[in-house]
Amino acid sequence: MENLRDQFEYALSADPGADAGRLADVAIAEGGRVRRRRHRIAVAGVAAAIVAAGGVTAGVLHQPRPTEALRTLEADAPALDNRAMLLVGASSDCENAPPGADATDPALFLTAAATDGQKSALAAALRADPRVTGSFFMSRDQAYDRFRKLWSDSPDFVKSVTPQSLPEVFYLRLKDATQYETFKLDYAAQPGIQDIIGSVCPASAPIGGIE
């Protein structure tokens, strides 16, 4: 036994061994729970912060259930500070499109100050746009209804939100997901538009993942 390294080796020779596969399985089960819990807290916090800051896009409010939002967030954890991550479509079948990627379902969030004239101009433009195969408009009241149901287990959070803090949204389905980038460029600068966020939805999902 010349050196300390060997002495350590010898000290460890009584190692009873352990099943690494089992270690991994337990870590995946337990660690997954930890992560989901953490995201639930983070999402509630982010959502509350967005609402407190004026509501703007608040895409998270359109989730059918917070846990669905979490599941999508979980896949790309670092983006929690990105509001776009919060819009993952109401259906768990939809997921948020990363920046620069194709998307099937753009959501056009309107500014709080968007006028009726701007809204009907947008509606007409979308109707005439051959890239758009389906669309619907969600008013503040509709959004608020969904929001209340979605967050019914967090009454304090619900109380902190009014219909006025929620945005109006055009939900769209594109004919071809690869057209999303140019579509977004065409509309991003239109008056009344605050933000455009893309989701990827399967054909079977409702537009924007909103039932």
Partner: peptide, 23 residues
């Protein structure tokens, strides 16, 4: 203003992609 047209072309299927990524 509500107008819904059935999409004419299948959109990307998101769910399998996510499951595959998790696996």
């Amino acid at each position: 203003m509500t107008e819904t047209v059935t999409p004419s072309r299948p959109a990307a299927d998101a769910r399998p992609a996510r499951t595959t990524r998790r696996r």
